[in-house]
Amino acid sequence: MISIKKITKKYGSDYYALKDVSLDIQSGEFVSLVGQSGTGKTTLVKLIIAEEKPTSGRIIIGGWDITKIESYEIPYLRRQIGVVFQDFKLLPKMTVYENVAFALQTCGAKKRKITDTVPQVLKIVGLDNKMDRYPHQLSGGEQQRVVIARSLVHRPKLLIADEPTGNLDSINTKEIIDLLLKINEIGTTVLLVTHNREVVNNLKKRVITIDNGEIVSDQERGRYLL
């Protein structure tokens, strides 16, 4: 469970990216975090993955207060949180297999674990037949699926997808959202950050709306309000 308590993030002396934000996410939930550009959605993601520290307030993940996290603990938090961004962040000189394996290599995984895990996650995202391709040989949707596969190699408890469909057409968008739902069904909590109205309205899942750094709505089976 994620518990965010009265989080404020201030940049400079008077700009509030987030103001007094509080919310709870239960394990296994699929939550959409919506709002227009620049309303503080990505700031909240950065706080959850400890890329930034809040000005005030607390974020507790599984009983672990990550606002007090030590530098050496951050990697171990991130291995439990898969992150998918709009810009795919794939290494162009590595194949699909190598890009996914890289996430395990950098964490010191043994060869055996890599050769077992990588094909499994590539199968989940439906790219087990394109393991030897390079990113430029894939469509946008496929590239995003490689990123999702990479975020799954540590079997994360939480998957945060920050505008994962921002660069995709409607067909690829549907494929990615279906994949996120599939991942949620196998037990992973999913936090989808988006401003895609159609995606949110079709999901019929919990929707949290942020506007000007504040939560303006939190609905169980919500719709895109803004």
């Binding site: 990697p75 938090l77 291995r79 962040k89 290494l91 890289f102 964490c107 010191g108 975020s151 190699v153």
Partner: peptide, 17 residues
């Protein structure tokens, strides 16, 4: 920088980076 950004994102230890 790209490689390092990804390393940090996927949880590579500080020492490893």
């Amino acid at each position: 920088r790209e490689e390092i950004g990804i390393m940090k994102l996927v949880g590579a230890s500080n020492w490893f980076v």
